[in-house]
């Protein structure tokens, strides 16, 4: 465990909780892509199946349970509890265009052709693109609530911190995992455009709105 890992995990946790609180407090999931949230629930489910087979640490198990629990709670709030506020018309990204190629890639490029390993690889690839329906939704409506941008910023920051973590682990532990690194870099790149808007607009007190 290094400082980048820890702050990365906490940033990820902050993002998840910000989103849950936003929906809960405003009693609305307007502007949130339910499809992205379903993809994240799939990501956590397929990656953390090892909860049932291997124990790593209390920290590890607790975080996994929290991530999975929050992911399903978010999906429940969007599609059940606050369904009336869900903006389905703008959430029109075709997720099969992500899930099918990502599934194929996980079967083709993995460390070991076993069930658990392919699921792990699938979750890594899927996570790197799971935010696309959300970004697509923002580009379609042309704006995002400030709280939604904080959520996205924390989520992007988590991935950027994980990259620093991998650099650290490569130097000090001689460890690297090419699949995780490539997927992590792709994921971070997807946020670059958003980071720019966040710094130039949201941090200066303006609402995030895109030019028409």
């Amino acid at each position: 465990m290094n400082i980048f890992r820890l702050t990365g995990d906490l940033s990820h946790l902050a993002a998840i909780i910000i989103l849950l609180l936003k929906i809960w407090k405003s009693r609305s999931c307007a502007g949130i892509s339910g499809k992205s949230q379903i993809l994240f629930a799939i990501v956590f489910t397929t990656r953390y199946l090892d909860l049932l087979s291997t124990f790593i640490s209390l920290y590890n198990s607790c975080m996994k349970v929290i991530y999975i629990g929050c992911a399903y709670a978010t999906v429940y709030m969007i599609y059940m509890k606050f369904r009336a506020t869900y903006d389905g018309n703008h959430d029109s990204f075709r997720v099969e265009f992500l899930v099918v190629p990502v599934g194929g890639l996980a079967v083709l490029i993995n460390h070991d052709f076993s069930f658990m390993e392919i699921l792990w690889t699938f979750s890594i690839y899927l996570e790197s693109v799971a935010i696309l329906p959300q970004l697509f939704m923002i580009s379609k409506t042309g704006e995002a609530e400030t709280i939604t941008t904080h959520y996205l910023f924390c989520l992007g920051l988590y991935r950027a911190l994980y990259i620093f973590n991998w650099v650290w682990r490569f130097y000090f532990e001689g460890f690297f995992d090419l699949i995780a690194i490539v997927a992590g870099v792709v994921q971070t790149i997807l946020y670059c455009d958003f980071f720019y808007l966040y710094v130039t607009k949201v941090l200066k007190g303006k609402k995030l709105s895109l030019p028409a």
């Binding site: 890992r5 790593i56 991530y67 682990r169 460890f175 995780a180």
Partner: peptide, 10 residues
């Protein structure tokens, strides 16, 4: 060994 190393990551 890399597979064992990464198992502690979330």
């Amino acid at each position: 060994p890399s597979r064992e190393c990464r198992k502690d990551e979330l």
